[in-house]
Nucleic acid binder design. Structure first.
Lengths: 314, 314
DNA sequence: TTGAGACAATCACTTATGCTTATGTTTATG
DNA sequence: CATAAACATAAGCATAAGTGATTGTCTCAA
């Protein structure tokens, strides 16, 4: 029983046969090249012709080469385009799995963006020069998670503790809060070794960030130590805050990751008792295969975290 | 026994399944849409995944929808492009067979270009508005035949008699040579009815074309009648020649097809004895399937030839 | 004109692929 | 914890695809 065939019955193998027969000028030649028998080529061409409803080759008979009909020439052009597209897909797929090309979109937040991320991006670029890295900075964990779930980003940093069953969370380490003091200030003198008693901040005029999740955490930590901080200056920029400290305006409590340690105008001290440090997390969508480049990003981030962050405290 | 698979084992049917599963969000849904069982979809996806060497869908299990992996998303884009290309091929093929779109390249020569061809092109355009008609004019039959054999043109006019075993020749009819006389000239008075005795041209100062196959034929015809023509003016343009006749410079012998019959400043006479008339032929490559548009062109040309040319004299 | 050579079409047969049904496994849900 | 929903797997079968042999057609050369 004969079924009607249409263009949807064309298969890529048929198109490859079309190309080879056109190249070779004979069914036998194509059979040789493709490793089939002549009969197989004959049947494949016949089935392709049935599918498109047109003769594709003129077979003059005898030793003269078969030639394309106008329909064959037309289809051949499209066949080449389709094969090229498939080859392109192949290349892009292997780029994808190697993680060396394509696009990686990464969520981040301020304190990570300052030092940790630039180094990480540098290492990623060294490992995958053709990878296009996009960064999206958001203040709030929830915004970053929304982007990740929506597929707008492939991986993101988060502040811990954080939990979401939709996410796979990787703990990179903790980022302690430190206090920045003007180099020659009274407070700097009060510090014992590497530590400043938190109570000394009780009446100091302080430098802070504009309200955000990090600042809230710092304020909560200070309140837990019985201190109500009084801010005389607020900035959004870490450099500006650090500049104010250097100028002697007052101390600032900041996440260690955000501090420019090269600054000789300030001294950096731990707090005693410490403010509960932030866990730096990295998150992927749970249950969906991650982008290989994102996995590599996580690997490098773990390594970097080991160098720059404290071990997870648990 | 397991064979290694590669991208070349991807088939269009697989890509269609990829699309449908991605659209439906489930194997069962895709099976429904495509009219297969769920197991078939499962196997097709598995074989596609084997071919590309990558997981293409995340199957969360339970009632939650399957989702594309990054590799799946990448391949889906290419799948859509490939299907679009195939759909385009389909459209172009049906345009090709209907002869209503695409390109038709036609060889021609001067006297055909003047009146017969414009009318023919007009009719072709009416029948196939989206067909792109290219004309290539050459003086010599051989040049036209070369272009036809080389596939540079799809169909061509030729002057007969002509024979070439590589060509399929269609006789459209004969184009008689006529003499154009200035309206009130001595020669016009000598003409009896519609005929002028060829001998009267013996000493006339004549208007002719620059040397070309047509002119050679005319000169040979006149010599056969015992006359050696003396040209006082030669042009390459039929209008210019006709203008010279109108101005009384002398008579001109031209193929009837090239004559502007609307010109009231001249009279047109047959010659007696006549110059052996030209057969107007149209030629296709023999042994190769012709372009459907070319076949339609031939049909219209035959019809037009019946109206404008004399019946083949044999 | 005839025979040889080259090549595609076709036939009968074999093999491989793909589909179906039935069953197993996994995961969410009440 | 049992049930339902959905994909995976296995076994059997139908069909498509491939092979080898044969036939038919065309060209070329004797």
């Amino acid at each position: 029983m004969l079924m009607f065939m249409g263009i949807e019955d064309v298969e890529i193998k048929h198109l490859a046969t079309l190309r080879t027969v056109a190249d070779e000028g004979s069914f036998i030649g194509a059979a040789d090249v493709l490793g089939y028998s002549q009969a197989a080529i004959s049947q494949q061409v016949a089935s392709l012709e049935r599918a498109v409803g047109q003769r594709l080759f003129d077979r003059p008979g005898g030793p003269r080469p078969v030639t394309l009909t106008p329909a064959g020439r037309l289809l051949l052009g499209h066949a080449k385009a389709i094969h090229a597209r498939l080859a392109l897909a192949d290349r892009e797929l292997s780029d994808l799995v190697s993680g060396t090309a394509g696009r990686l979109r990464c969520g981040t937040f301020q304190s990570v963006s300052v030092q940790l991320l630039p180094e990480l991006v540098r290492e990623m670029r060294a490992a995958a020069p053709n990878l296009d890295i996009h960064l999206v900075e958001q203040d709030r964990n929830d915004s970053l998670v929304d982007l990740l779930i929506a597929g707008e980003i492939d991986v993101t940093f988060l502040e811990g503790p954080y939990d979401d069953s939709r996410l796979e969370l990787i703990e990179l380490g903790t980022d302690p809060f430190v206090v920045l003091l003007p180099k020659d200030s009274e407070l700097a003198r009060l510090a014992k070794g590497r530590t400043l008693a938190t109570e000394h901040l009780a009446h100091a005029p302080m430098i802070g960030e504009h309200p955000c999740s990090t600042q809230e955490r710092i304020d909560q930590g200070l309140r837990d130590a019985g201190i109500t901080p009084r801010y005389v200056f607020r900035a959004n920029d870490n450099g500006a805050m650090q500049g104010m400290v250097r100028a002697g305006l007052g101390p600032a409590v900041m996440p260690m990751l955000a501090v420019d340690t090269a600054d000789t105008g300030i001294v950096i001290k731990a707090l005693d008792p410490p403010i509960e440090p932030r866990m730096i997390l990295i998150a992927l969508r749970k249950g969906s295969t991650p982008l290989p480049a994102a996995e590599q990003f996580v690997r490098i981030a773990k390594h970097e975290g080991r160098k720059r962050l404290s071990r997870p405290a648990r």
